[in-house]
Design a protein around this nucleic acid. Structure first.
Length: 981
RNA sequence: GCCCGGGUGGUGAAAUUGGUAAACACGUAACACUUAAAAUGUUAUCUUCGUAAGGAGUUGUGGGUUCGAUUCCCACCCCGGGCACCA
């Protein structure tokens, strides 16, 4: 066969990113190749970044990581024929911009403009494919008109209400804050500990949506989970919403002292109504309204008032520190009645009870709650056990059998001390069938007839160990319940294990019976060795802790004791019935609080409300929106609980839209999170002046298919946005119940020193500098290659050269294009390499595994580079695969090959399934699980042939010679394992 | 304390329906090219014993299941994150 002479391409300039990147960015913009259209013939794909908050510091290399990922996905989807929406905008209202303005003495509007321009420039040099015609800015009146519109709808539906409750107040930022804006009791912005301050404020009723926000995290639609979100973020939201199901119980105040004619109750919320018989006192939060009402009848009024005022002075951090000592005061002279047993019990106030959770009052069950336990111990209040620990045998040989009757069996379990040494006597029980090994247990046995526990214990000690002289010291408390199946008795048993403590007086003992010997042998354990005993049975640790005097509240579920007719039932069984018996009702509460929506600051969306002297609070008519933020020269926060807007009388004083009488505008502004709670909708129809989004566009683009951003927004932006979206769904503005179908969090890029990248550590790497030295394509490639996308990784400028070398390798490979090879058959090996790369890169981009997609490309390039030439078609396929990652270099190469249209509007390559299947495969040969050799065979080689071949290898022979082959495991296409003895 | 992630060479990491651990890349070393350096290329690079052939060990620790475990099970240690006096 005659080889055609290879016609090589003309010489081509060396790779110089500076010479091509800016050129292509301009061309792409002028040719509008990224212009987004609502094309009904095409499938849509909406890929979204969490839009940035433009600070004065500009972007560092960590910021674009997520943007690079969405850029790759959007280019990939476009090349796959989708109509792609990949927009960008800016979130610029709120404290950071305003505080920056105050510091630099420039109006926030000017600062924001400057910062946005800088951010845009930084983004542009990275070559992103944003359609800037849909850019939004939350501070633009044309945008916040719709933020105000949504607020008005919330107001009209009663979901925005005025409240005067004490809220979190940051004394440094001089504004009220939502719970979500706190970090460990401090202002998330400035780190100042927050105070509680009563304030007139607007609050959004997010709690109305608590259940849906929780349930829809796992909602199913069309047989698949509609929320493809990282489990960690879902879990954070579940924690934040904090649903707990319990009961409301009334404790009637007994009126023995005063002749009061109104019957008063203390209402408590508890998740453990099963412990009601163990309630020995009730605790109210110091702020509880009932406390003020009862004050006149309290005998120690002075003491109580003093405690209340002291509690008020505490910061939230001090108050909610779980580690601090419990404090409290009894309301002397006040008693309440436990509804289940009519016991008269005392009432206390303590700051460990939170006023704004549940009912602000708790029923204290010290035996079964750690906090109540600590409180009762400190104030010497009675502790009454009502839940016995309950264990079910975990061994299959004596597992509970549902078709057999259950018999209650009083039993004793003994801890026995040596007569002179610090050792304890146990039994080493031989061979439980399904354990195959011994376990260590205490001396134990059933109580016969009306025998006392002490007597039963002594009898068992004699029978099982032979020791004659045991002295009963004490009982170790209430029984523990153990359910198992007795093979001897052919019955399920509910053993009530009474723990007893004995000491041997001397070593005098007799031989134990042969029968007993077969079952176990006696064993002495020192305290160090006691661990083997603890592992023997699940209840052993409980007995031991009791013996050592370390036992505290038992907080698990179990079996009821000392609870009247409920005795013998499990916690789960009685939850409802005991609640009803107590006259209470089941109730669900949430940790999630309503969203404090007012900020007493200048730089935010004005609330479109008017306070009229006659009509009260009146909504600004929709036609008058937006209510523009007035331009002012002084916007310093007042600190009085009023916004600085109060001073702008020209703006504040208006006519009431209803009665035309005197009225004032609402001067509170919205929080930073308002604009970002719906911005993803605006991109769908950014220029619409009639609606926040047209129904048509909303239907076309919803929901967001892929949303990428930082995990730090898990319990703020992502909860708020879901809340607003659900509300907009309810009023018919949007068509989906969730806004973001797939969410992916970006792992932070840390500084080279491993610390968070930021000005304060002086470890900031500026992307502009990296682009100037290495080029945007290298930066993009490196950030995606660093490691798994969601993982936090330290930046390393020196590692970046690998990515640059890779692009240069691709660049140089252009010389090897064989222009004569008109069909892609130049080289079979290359064909396979390319098709494998197409498959892997395609799969990995879809799975957001960018690091392995790039490594697959590197492998392909290395394989191709080892050959002397490459077919043009293959080279172009590789360029296309690389195009989303390195858009500039690939475009330059693509166009240089004579292509007329941009590579970014070309079609993504398809792989031939036949080309990704191997015809030959390496089979591993193991002897006793250790790799001893390998051989190459055709993929379809039969198992018998594989075995034969494996055995005949000289490497194998060496290991099986003179041994007996017991077993041969053949795994087709993988390995042969020969087991010999 | 509870709940989520995670722990693999000198470094970033790859590999999971259980089947050759360390792909790809950085770094390092030697060699080639060069007057020289850089760049580039070639080779080597988990640890350990051995001149070598070859052996042994190794995925946080300790057990278990299995012919075979980074992968599954049990217990524990460490790191990151969320919640936390939430009754």
């Amino acid at each position: 066969m005659i080889h055609p002479m290879k016609k090589k391409l003309k010489a081509f300039p060396a790779y110089d990113p500076a010479a091509i990147e800016n050129k292509w960015q301009k061309k792409w913009t002028s040719k509008k190749i990224y212009k987004t259209k609502e094309d009904s013939r095409k499938e849509k794909f909406y890929v979204l970044d969490m839009f940035p908050y433009p600070s004065g510091e500009g972007l560092h290399v960590g910021h674009p990581k997520g943007y690079i990922a969405t850029d790759i996905v959007s280019r990939f989807q476009r090349m796959n024929g989708k109509s792609v929406l990949h927009p960008m905008g800016f979130d610029a209202f709120g404290l950071p911009a305003e505080n920056y303005a105050l510091k630099t003495q420039t109006h926030p509007e000017i600062g924001v403009k400057k910062n946005v321009a800088r951010y845009k420039k930084q983004l542009e040099i990275l070559g992103f494919d944003y359609d800037w015609s849909r850019e939004i800015n939350t501070t633009d009146p044309a945008y916040y008109r719709w933020t105000q519109w949504i607020f008005l709808q919330l107001f009209k539906k009663g979901l925005a209400y005025q409240s005067f409750e004490p809220i979190n107040w940051c004394p440094s930022c001089k504004t009220g804050l939502a719970n979500e804006d706190l970090e460990d009791g401090r202002c998330e912005r400035c780190g100042t500990p927050v105070e509680k301050k009563p304030l007139r404020q607007w609050v959004l009723k997010i709690t109305d949506y608590a259940d849906r926000l929780l349930n829809d995290l796992d909602a199913k639609a069309n047989d698949k989970s509609i929320l493809d979100w990282p489990e960690a973020i879902k879990e954070s939201q579940r924690n934040w919403i904090g649903k707990s199901e319990g009961a409301l119980i009334q404790f009637q105040i007994s009126n023995s002292k005063e002749s009061s004619n109104t019957q008063r109750n203390v209402e408590v919320f508890s998740t453990r109504p099963d412990t009601l018989f163990g309630v020995t006192y009730v605790v109210l939060a110091p702020e509880h309204t009932l406390v003020q009402e009862l004050l006149s009848t309290v005998l120690n009024r002075g003491e109580v008032e003093e405690y209340i005022s002291k509690a008020k002075l505490e910061t939230e951090i001090e108050r909610t520190d779980a580690k601090k000592d419990k404090t409290g005061v009894e309301l002397k002279g006040i008693k309440v009645i436990n509804p289940v047993n009519k016991a008269e019990i005392p009432v206390w106030i303590s700051d460990y009870v939170l006023a704004d959770y549940g009912t602000g009052a708790v029923m204290a069950v010290p035996a079964h709650d750690e906090r109540d336990w600590a409180f009762a111990k400190k104030f010497k209040l009675p502790i009454k056990e009502v839940i016995a620990p309950l264990f079910v045998s975990e061994y299959s040989s004596d597992a509970w059998r549902s078709n057999e009757p259950e018999v209650i069996r009083p039993t004793v379990v003994c801890i026995i001390k040596h007569w002179s040494e610090n050792k304890y006597l146990f039994l080493n029980k031989k061979g439980l069938a399904d354990l195959g090994k011994d376990i260590v247990v205490g001396v134990a046995g059933g109580v016969d007839g009306d025998e006392s526990y002490e007597k039963a214990g002594m009898r068992e000690i004699l029978e099982e160990t032979g020791y004659k002289n045991a002295r009963f010291v004490k009982s170790l408390g209430n029984p523990v319940v153990y359910r198992y199946y007795s093979k001897n008795g052919n019955q399920n048993r509910m053993a009530l294990l009474h723990p007893l403590y004995f000491e041997l007086i001397d070593g005098d003992h007799v031989e134990i019976s042969e029968e007993e010997k077969k079952l176990h042998e006696t064993i002495w354990l020192s305290e160090d060795e006691i661990g083997t005993y603890l592992a023997g049975r699940p209840f052993n640790p409980i007995f031991w802790e009791r013996f050592k005097g370390n036992a505290d509240a038992f907080t698990d579920y179990g079996m009821l004791i000392n609870s009247g007719s409920f005795d013998g039932k499990t916690s789960a069984e009685v939850k409802r019935s005991i609640t009803e018996y107590a006259g209470g009702s089941l109730k669900t509460t949430y940790k999630l609080r309503d969203w404090v929506f007012s900020r007493q600051r200048y730089w935010g969306e004005p609330m479109p409300l008017i306070h009229c002297e006659k009509c009260g609070v009146v909504a600004v008519p929709e036609k008058d929106l937006p209510v523009k933020l007035p331009k002012v020269t002084s916007y310093e926060p007042t600190g009085t609980g009023e916004s600085p807007l109060v001073a702008i009388t020209k703006w504040v004083n208006v006519k009431c839209p209803q009665c035309k009488g005197k009225a004032k505008r609402e001067t509170n502004t919205m929080p930073q999170w308002a604009g970002s709670s719906w911005y993803y909708l605006r991109y769908m129809d950014a220029k619409n002046t009639k609606a926040l989004v047209s129904a048509k566009n909303e239907k076309y683009w919803s929901p967001v298919d892929l949303y990428i951003g930082g995990a730090e927004h898990a319990t703020r932006h992502l909860i708020y946005a879901r809340f607003w979206h659900k509300f907009l769904f309810d009023i018919g503005v949007v068509s989906t119940i969730e806004p973001f179908k797939k969410l992916q969090s970006v792992g932070l890029i840390m500084g080279e020193d491993g610390r968070k990248m930021g000005k304060r550590y002086g470890n900031v790497v500026n992307p502009d500098d990296i682009v100037a030295t290495y080029g945007a394509d290298t930066l993009r490639l490196y950030e995606m290659f660093m490691g798994p996308f969601e993982q936090q990784i330290a930046w390393s400028t020196s590692s970046m050269v690998g990515s640059r070398r890779f692009i240069e390798k691709v660049w140089k490979l252009r010389e090897k294009i064989d222009e004569n090879g008109t069909t892609p058959t130049t080289n079979l090996a290359i064909t396979k390499s390319v098709h494998r790369a197409i498959k892997k890169v395609t799969d990995d981009i879809q799975g957001l595994r960018f690091n392995t997609a790039i490594s697959a490309l590197m492998i392909a390039i290395n394989e191709i580079d080892a050959n002397s030439s490459i077919a043009r078609e293959h080279y172009e396929s590789i360029l296309k695969l690389l195009a989303p990652f390195a858009p500039h270099a690939t475009e330059e190469l693509w166009i240089s090959l004579g292509n007329k249209k941009s590579i970014h509007v070309s079609t993504w390559p398809k792989y031939d399934p036949a080309q990704v299947i191997d015809t030959e495969i390496t089979i591993i040969v193991q002897v006793n699980g250790k790799v001893r050799g390998s051989f190459v065979v055709a993929t379809d080689c039969s198992n018998a042939d594989l075995e034969l071949k494996a055995k005949s290898l000289p490497e194998t022979q060496k290991w099986i010679e003179g041994k007996k082959v017991v077993k041969v495991i053949v795994v087709p296409k993988r390995l042969v394992n020969i087991v010999v003895v």
